[in-house]
């Protein structure tokens, strides 16, 4: 199963303060450990929300708001995507990570990624319908 490990933002990451050399080294080592254990699928650090935007959906309306966004603790500063056998294993890996914002309180949230089998048998009629629709669309294209 796959888990996304979400690093929550703090005021420094939102201010665009780059990690110092020590943290970069520690993170490098940690990433290396994840790679060597064969569990890391992907991982990135994110720029502050001031460089991002949001698209708000309201019925059929779309409204674009530029960053920055104020609710710092709810924002995300980076992520890893890992493949492991259990939530406990994901937790074990996260416990080994360096504190993303040394000297402060920070948080990494662990979220499981949906897999096809999570949808269960009750999902199959729609799935089948979707498949058939796509196939029909492809057949038309030919």
């Amino acid at each position: 199963m796959r888990f996304m490990l979400l690093v929550k933002a703090d005021k420094n990451s939102e201010a665009g303060v780059l990690p110092d050399e020590k943290l970069l080294t520690d993170m490098g080592k940690y990433n290396d450990e994840l790679v060597k254990a064969g569990v890391l699928l992907a991982g990135e650090g994110l720029q502050p929300s001031s460089k991002g935007a949001r698209v708000k959906f309201s019925g059929s309306k779309r409204t674009v708001t530029d960053g920055p966004f104020s609710e710092t603790k709810e924002l995300i500063a980076g992520f890893w995507l890992i493949q492991v056998k259990s939530k406990e294993e994901a937790i074990e890996w996260v416990k080994r990570a360096p504190n993303p914002f040394p000297g402060t309180e920070s948080e990494i949230e662990i979220r499981q990624v949906f897999e096809a089998e999570d949808f269960g048998p009750e999902f199959t009629p729609e799935l089948r319908e979707e498949e058939e629709r796509q196939r029909a669309a492809m057949a038309k294209k030919r």
Binding site: V84, K85, S86, E88, E89, I91, E92, W93
Partner: peptide, 10 residues
Amino acid sequence: HRAIEAVWRI
């Protein structure tokens, strides 16, 4: 026990 299993796997 589950935590120990996870540690073992790692």
